[in-house]
Design a protein around this nucleic acid. Structure first.
Lengths: 146, 146
DNA sequence: TATTTTCACTTGCATTTCACAAGTTAGATA
DNA sequence: TATCTAACTTGTGAAATGCAAGTGAAAATA
């Protein structure tokens, strides 16, 4: 059941505007990419990702993503220092957005990671299904830790 | 022929990162929405759009979008004050990105404009084809002005 | 022709956000 | 007990943003 939170003080009711207000910055989607495509789940992994996000920005973005219901945070039961960040259903539903952004840049800009691009181009729906499947499996494995 | 410009000082070669560096702010995609979906073509129209962009920000974003080859600027031959902003092929290729962002927000946030959302949901490919068609027609009409 | 309007901006300034470096705290490890 | 690690927070300067007012060229109007 997708809960739709009322929008507090949005600039407009346009759905694109909502997306832009939530995701329209230089870091949020990269964090989501790291979780969705690379399986990153810890603060340290995000920090060490290639684009080098600053630690205060990372903390801020994780807070905001959680506030928006895109990720969840839980403590690792076997090591109380570690936090595990996971994508919610709302978060994994961003897969088509990321996918189209990858395809657009790959088609119009000089970019790397052509294996990923070709994989998406070959069969977009299958790629999205695989992403969702991995997410679902990781979820089950997480629950098994308790 | 899609020219791929070399990326000057990108944070990484990841295609998603390229998209985020070009489009990842609170206004660029709204300007593109106004051009793509509402047919806006002048500075004044963008300024008066519902979200109320500041004039200096608008000028800056139009400059950057043009520098990235997403829009073009031409002077209206019948009124030398007016400039006409148009989406390039690279710009109209953002339609799938906008579409997925609209669907995501519509599914998870409290948003308006449900007619548009339902139109997209009914047949996404047909919606995209219609957007492209309108763009192509507008292009031809523009050329006819000369 | 002179004056006013329109259009697409620019400029100045206060506020907010960002980037970088350093420091902090709770919990694990030796 | 001391050290280490993970996940932050804090401080500071730089850059981006938001708001109001002003500018200049071209067009419309008197």
């Amino acid at each position: 059941m997708p809960k739709k939170r009322p929008s507090p003080k949005r600039r407009s009711g346009c759905p694109l505007n909502a997306s832009v207000e939530i995701l329209g910055d230089r870091w949020s989607l990269l964090i989501i990419r790291d979780m969705m495509l690379r399986g990153f789940r810890s603060y340290k992994e995000f920090l060490e990702s290639y684009e080098r996000i600053a630690t205060n920005i990372l903390a801020d973005r994780l807070r905001k993503l959680e506030a928006h219901g895109i990720i969840t945070t839980e403590r690792n039961p076997s090591d109380g220092r570690k936090l595990i960040y996971s994508l919610t259903a709302k978060g994994i539903d961003l897969a088509p957005v990321l996918t189209e952004m990858v395809l657009w840049a790959a088609g119009h800009e000089d970019t790397a990671n052509q294996e990923l691009v070709r994989l998406i181009q070959k069969d977009k729906e299958q790629f999205l299904a695989a992403v969702r499947q991995r997410w679902a499996e990781q979820r089950i494995r997480s629950m098994a830790n308790y």
